[in-house]
């Protein structure tokens, strides 16, 4: 590490997106998104279907290329890296739609979550911790992941992304398709991870639940940041209440 880097370190955000633009052929999914995350923050990314939330996470993980703008990780540009390399750098990504390895057991899925690690003792300890967080997974270790219920698969997906011991965890709609009680459970787990110091970028449709545990939030609309603020500010924002938080039905424009 260079001296300049060390001097800059305190002010450099963990992750910083500058004017990020992503195109899929003729479709522009993101148009100049700015976003920065400090160590230890839980930031939620809200927005309607097709707003570009998943695309933002996919761009950070280098699954899609930025057409313009940049993504910096601890001050270094991520452009041109392979997705596997971002995992090595400490960026975990729990993708949209769970994507557990259906043909492998729960235990194998978790084991592969720690693919890049070699510290056997640390892996075993983290596995224990995952089973503590999600006792249901512990009961189903030998079961094929494809035979788990949707909620259990979601827990497995989250647990698996924790097994890499990421510095930043990108979560794409972890509450999707879960019963209200399970949503509360998953959000509780995320809040607990947040208290332990994990930095998270949480994409959610369930704005109430996400803002209840987040420090800050951003609302994307048609690929651009429409609103940004602390969780309290957003919870109090009339416009947001009308369009995303489920009250004021029919009072929208």
């Amino acid at each position: 590490m260079t001296a300049a880097h060390d001097l800059a370190a305190p002010s450099v955000p963990l992750l910083e997106l500058r004017r990020l633009t992503v195109r899929y052929g003729a479709i522009t999914a993101l148009r100049g998104v700015d976003l920065s995350l400090q160590q230890g923050e839980l930031v939620t990314l809200l927005g309607a279907n097709g707003a570009g939330k998943s695309t933002t996470l996919r761009a950070i993980s280098q699954l899609v290329r930025a057409s313009a703008g940049s993504i910096h990780w601890r001050g270094a540009d991520l452009a041109g890296r392979r997705p596997e390399a971002t995992v090595k750098l400490g960026i975990g990504h729990c993708p949209e739609g769970r994507r557990v390895l259906a043909r492998q057991s729960v235990a194998s899925n978790l084991e592969l979550g720690a693919w890049l690690r070699r510290d056997k003792a640390g892996i075993a300890a983290d596995l224990e911790r995952c089973y503590q967080l999600f006792p249901r997974l512990a009961e189903r270790q030998r079961q094929l992941a494809g035979s788990l219920s949707g909620g259990e698969q979601q827990m497995l997906a989250i647990a698996r992304s924790l097994m890499a011991r990421p510095s930043l965890l990108l979560l794409d709609e972890p509450s999707l398709g879960l019963a209200p009680k399970l949503v509360a459970e998953v959000m509780g787990t995320l809040a607990e991870l947040h208290r332990d110091g994990l930095t998270m970028l949480l994409v959610e449709q369930n704005a109430n639940a996400a803002l209840a545990i987040a420090d800050r939030g951003l609302v994307l609309e048609a690929g651009a940041v429409r609103l940004a603020g602390t969780a309290q500010e957003l919870l109090a924002n009339a416009e947001l209440r009308a369009s995303y938080l489920g009250d004021g039905e029919g009072s929208g424009p």
């Binding site: 993980s61 392979r82 997705p83 596997e84 995992v87 993708p95 994507r99 390895l101 259906a102 492998q104």
Partner: peptide, 12 residues
Amino acid sequence: EDPVTAQLLGID
């Protein structure tokens, strides 16, 4: 089974 997920696990 799923090349994209494999990448997100850090598998080359």
